[in-house]
Write a protein that binds this DNA or RNA. Structure first.
Lengths: 185, 185
DNA sequence: AGATAAACAGACAGACTTGTCTGTAAAGAT
DNA sequence: ATCTTTACAGACAAGTCTGTCTGTTTATCT
């Protein structure tokens, strides 16, 4: 019987619900019901729904940073790294019912005054761009060309997530993976 | 003094607001206020908010079909067609305060039971994919290869819109355009 | 002029939302 | 044993939302 503290239960439950139905599609009442906590407990740990969202994005971002570092340290050739990344993306999307990128989805419903959320989205996106640039740098000697190819991989990755969500299918990810392999091969 | 009928005013106002702040971020009361109509008039023309959204998506889709046909009939070489398309996308995003793709943004907040909306999003995305495949077919003789490159252009296009929105900048579109030119050149 | 259609104004219902508040129960620490 | 922290339960405020309703005004057509 897992019984972590209330904060962790809230964060985990909110993460699942936010991912599945979007930040604006889930209310606090549902979160605390499913997490089995009282509303007062919620507001003891999070000053607002927005700050809960920030904690969720931050947690995913931390995990993403770990994964990027792990992949870059794996010793694989860059082409295989990119292929592994896209294969994992395909698994992730399929497992999550093609809900796409949580950051982009959250960004689509948060206006400019949610500056904490917007900041985290931008942070994560820039860090993912940087990850792809690092991969490209290992495959391409010309520095400027490597940066351009890295950005290209990043754009392909984003489009693959987005269209897999819209079309509820996997081919955009496969297309992006093939393109990435060609660009790095 | 333009004074179209109430339905047109509602549709135009809703279009601007949906685009700017997202489908779920705009209420009917605001729409009818800004359109200068009564609520009863709204429900005389649209049975629900969802059907208003469908009318909006349909209208944009029709315009998009026209633009695609016009571009394909322009007599430009395929590489220039794609370049023109991405340049226009950049203008569109900049003019609209980097709000990204209305279809993807709407898809991010509509669940599966909004089946009319989901259908239109899928329709539009498939039609855009088809547009890129047609461009690729004119530049690449091998049929299978052309289809694959067309899909790649489509994924680049989607990623460019999405990341231009997230990062509030234009470089993803420029990256996608350069990649498209390379793929077709 | 009289009939018909369309748009007007706006109250209202019912169900949601976030966030605050009061009070209670169960732990662990000194 | 008492004190403090943490969590529980849930009512409540104040506002939002969509959609329905009654009734009035304006315009067009015959």
């Amino acid at each position: 019987m897992k019984k972590p503290n209330a904060r962790d239960r809230i964060l985990e439950t909110a993460g699942e619900l936010f991912f599945q139905r979007g930040y604006s599609g889930v209310g606090i009442n549902e979160i605390i019901d499913k997490a089995g906590t009282a509303k007062a407990s919620f507001y003891q740990h999070f000053p607002s729904k927005e700050s809960l969202c920030e904690a969720w994005l931050q947690e995913m971002h931390d995990r993403s940073i770990d994964y990027h570092a792990q992949l870059l340290d794996s010793g694989m050739p860059p082409r295989d790294m990119a292929a592994a990344y896209f294969t994992r993306l395909a698994d992730f999307l399929q497992a999550g019912d093609f809900r796409g990128c949580p950051y982009s989805n959250t960004g689509a419903v948060s206006d400019e005054n949610c500056c904490g959320i917007v900041r985290l989205i931008r942070l994560h996106k820039e860090s993912t761009r940087d990850f792809f640039r690092r991969i490209a740098t290992r495959a391409i000697s010309d520095e400027a060309r490597a940066a351009a190819i890295g950005d290209r991989l990043f754009v392909l990755y984003s489009g693959a997530s987005s269209e897999a969500q819209n079309l509820k299918c996997l081919w955009p990810v496969e297309v992006a993976r093939d393109a990435a392999v060609e660009l790095l091969g």
